[in-house]
Computed example of a mutant assay.
Amino acid sequence: MAPASGRPDGLVAGDPGVLLEELVTGAGEPVTVFAHGLAGDISGTRPLGSGVAGRRVFFHFRGHGRSAAPPGPWSFADLAGDLRAVADRSGATRAVGVSMGAGALCRLIADTPERFERIVLFLPAPLDGVRPPRAEARLARLLAAVESGEAALVARAVEPELPPSALNTPSGRSHLRQRVEQLTADGLARELGTLWREPAVPDESALAAFRGRALVIGCVGDDVHPAPVAERLAGLLPGAVLHVYDRPAVLWTQRKDLRERVSAFLNAA
């Protein structure tokens, strides 16, 4: 069980030379593992699991939080190895991937189609190694701000993650403060910029071998996570359910519906 503070439980072994920060909540079966996005963290994926039955395993990929790995370059094969290590250790049969985490999850099921019974891919990243310019600029801005060590610069780099309507609300200020504290305390590995030197999934047709159930969630108007990427991915996965929201910042504007949609899919018999 997670400690009362909600802080990660500690570091667990991944691939050789890799240590991954992990937080476990809930109890019983089934077990679901949650994979965050680029420059994201455990706290950012926890809302997606709030209604999910059973044990929920959250972790930080290499280069995030207190997770550590040998120097890069790194690839999505490496991220898939992180995800696999956490899933195998916990006995997870279900998985949720956000953005970069969705790419890592796709790489894992392309390599091992039978690994999960159910998966959720939220705002999936492109699998072909070609990123939207806004995504490239976001990472460069974050890495530079974190490297500076100046909280004010980190705050300015993180602010675009929030919709304008949330910036001056208590929840928005709390989110911003938490993100700045986490990034300034733990840093962000520069090697993360090497991930897109090759496709996340070299042969996308391999996804057709997946025999579990998949839910793909995208949204219109997100320059970092274009809706056509979600639509294409849903077409690659046999029988996938696709839902596209009509505006971005889904975790802020449609949080209740998103949580219910994810939990209903994962909790179904």
Rank of each mutant, 00 (worst) to 15 (best):
L143F: 11
E114F: 06
P133L: 11
A157G: 11
P124M: 02
R115S: 09
S99L: 14
G129S: 09
S99G: 13
G54E: 03
L143D: 02
W74S: 00
G91E: 02
P160M: 13
G81W: 04
L127P: 00
V146H: 06
G103H: 09
R89S: 06
F76N: 04
E136H: 12
R134G: 12
P113G: 08
L79W: 02
G72E: 05
R131K: 10
A125W: 01
E136S: 14
R134E: 15
L127T: 00
G63D: 11
F61K: 02
M100Y: 07
L79Y: 06
R55T: 15
F58H: 15
A155Q: 15
R62D: 08
G65A: 08
D88Y: 02
R56A: 05
A104Q: 09
A102G: 14
P71K: 11
G149S: 11
R94G: 03
P124T: 04
R138F: 14
R131P: 01
P126I: 04
L127D: 00
P132C: 12
A135K: 10
W74R: 04
A155S: 15
V154P: 00
A140W: 02
E159I: 13
P160N: 09
S148W: 09
A137D: 15
R56T: 06
L143A: 10
E136Y: 05
E150S: 07
A77N: 03
M100K: 05
R115C: 09
R134Y: 05
G91K: 12
L123I: 02
P133E: 08
V154Q: 04
G54M: 04
G103Q: 06
G149V: 10
A144S: 14
G63H: 13
A166K: 00
L162E: 05
L142R: 15
V98L: 15
V86F: 07
R156M: 14
A137H: 15
E150T: 03
D128E: 05
P126F: 01
I109R: 06
L142W: 12
A77V: 13
S99T: 13
F59P: 03
P133R: 13
A110T: 04
W74C: 00
V120I: 09
S148E: 07
